[in-house]
Design a protein around this nucleic acid. Structure first.
Lengths: 289, 289
DNA sequence: GTTCCGCATGAATCGATAG
DNA sequence: ACTATCGATTCATGCGGAA
């Protein structure tokens, strides 16, 4: 399968207009968070955040396929000792735009930033807002199943005892649990709480998320050959993972330096992918409990 | 120290008016979720939820001390395949009322409800919204530091390879990769993600949260002799924990049956508290990663 | 006295059927 | 068309009883 990784330079609000309607299966991105200090990367003032984002989400709504998903990694900052409300307002406004707020996944960061404050603890979680265009959309749940808990393991071990008998008796009565569904199963479906560590290796980008994060959603909402879009590419994590998982991808980045860096690395990896793939084994992610 | 547990029967919207201004140090409650428990409370329609709650939160704002905290356990439910937005709207409206949305803690439920659906996974988390009246408020962080129990100490003594490698295989173990960080430390500050199981033992109340939940916040935001309020008492978990931790408490309940049940049990426990307290050792809560 | 195993059940959600 | 009810699905936990 020929996989295309399309990296573009520019403001996504404008670059997105180049993309055709209904051409993307998954949008996974972590936009610049709101910040009072404008020095940092892409800092947008909290009070302007919603107005800044809505024209972009409007384009995203256009390019996404009807069966596609938009996963937005975001967390509101603390301003004057209080959580900002721009994320809440953004959800409400995006619904008016036509988005469905289908679910909110939680990324529980195992190793969050250290620090101590008198009025709060360390922030160990971020939101992964799942928006769709329709109530029905593509979701490949089996791709992200996780090992089952101890209870089921021990139960499956002794499946030959009472469960077997009950299975037979079930034929006539129609009562009892459908044990046959469990036979041979050692995996369970995850929950909407993801549990993985932040990336220690800084990729010269202030907001790099671990590869496990886009990997989980790419597996869940796309199949090989589909197209993934990250309008705030940054260090290109989403695109690298998409490439590794044989998904086409588009990355848009406004900073020349990041654009150049990702552009060159994408070319490198394209060659490596013709070699044995063992080294690219998926990083572990624990999406359960 | 003489501790009073004041259980009142009635609609909290009205009963709260009997309480004096600035008389409560912590409000911890879990109101009926929208349209969730018709049989028990009559159920509030999602579209009416904010209007129903605001008169109550206005009273809560009045009775809370300037240094106090209000912790609201809530989670929006799915309606027509989409998450309801009433919690978001409630936060925005409560801020207009004068509340500060200081923080949002996450309760990560270890054992969430089972089930399988084509468009979502099991919901394994709930919100614990932390509101205050001022930027400065009472917070006793040391009281909820995660201690190194004997179990953990013995475990650290012989760090096996599996412990060093262990990352996510064991559910809720509380020990991740960085187990070496624990060596030489007695305690660690938790994060804003709480990690405990729902109570399986039926307390004749359909929405009982585990004791560890109010316990954590009572320890964090009050000291012995302070006053805790639960305007939606239900089975009285908040009040029982407050009593056990030597905090005064007020519980308001609209249903006669729950009121009677809690009333009698509070009396029973009052006597028992004069006996040795070993049996009341705090249930464990894992507030760190 | 431990450990192990069986069992009920929980702030759920979807889709089909019925009124 | 819109609401109400019901069956099917699914798994971690804690208890009690057994080994």
């Amino acid at each position: 399968m020929e996989i295309h990784t399309d990296i573009r330079l520019g403001d996504c609000k404008e670059v997105l207009k180049e993309l055709p309607d209904h051409s993307v299966d998954l949008i996974f991105t972590s936009p610049p968070y709101a910040d009072q200090r404008k020095k940092t990367y892409g800092g947008i003032h909290p009070t302007k955040y919603v107005d800044w984002f809505l024209p972009i989400s409007e384009q995203l709504l256009r390019v996404l396929k009807p069966t596609g998903s938009f996963v937005l990694n975001i967390k509101e900052r603390v301003v004057n000792g209080e959580r900002s409300t721009y994320v809440l307002e953004l959800i409400l406004e995006m619904r008016k735009q036509g988005w469905l707020w289908t679910e909110e996944y939680i990324w529980h960061k195992k190793n969050c930033y250290p620090g101590k404050w008198p009025n709060r603890f360390r922030d160990a979680w971020e939101r992964l807002l799942h928006f769709t265009k329709n109530k029905k959309f593509n979701m490949y749940q089996e791709e992200v199943m996780v090992p089952m808990g101890d209870w089921a393991k021990s139960r499956l071990k002794n499946l030959s005892d009472t469960d077997k008998i009950r299975d037979e008796s079930k034929v006539g009565s129609g009562f009892g649990k459908n044990i046959s569904n469990w036979i041979g199963r050692d995996k369970a479906y995850p929950t909407n709480v993801l549990h993985l560590a932040t990336e220690c290796t800084n990729k010269n980008h202030s907001a790099a998320f671990p590869e496990g994060l886009p990997e989980w959603f790419i597996k869940l909402f796309t199949k090989p050959g589909d197209t993934v879009l990250d309008p705030f590419m940054g260090s290109g994590t989403t695109n690298f993972v998409a490439q590794r998982l044989s998904r086409n991808s588009i990355g848009i980045e406004i900073k020349q330096a990041y654009y150049d860096m990702v552009k060159s690395q994408i070319e490198e990896r394209k060659h490596v992918l013709f070699e044995p793939k063992e080294k690219y084994e998926a990083s572990k992610i624990n999406g359960r409990n």
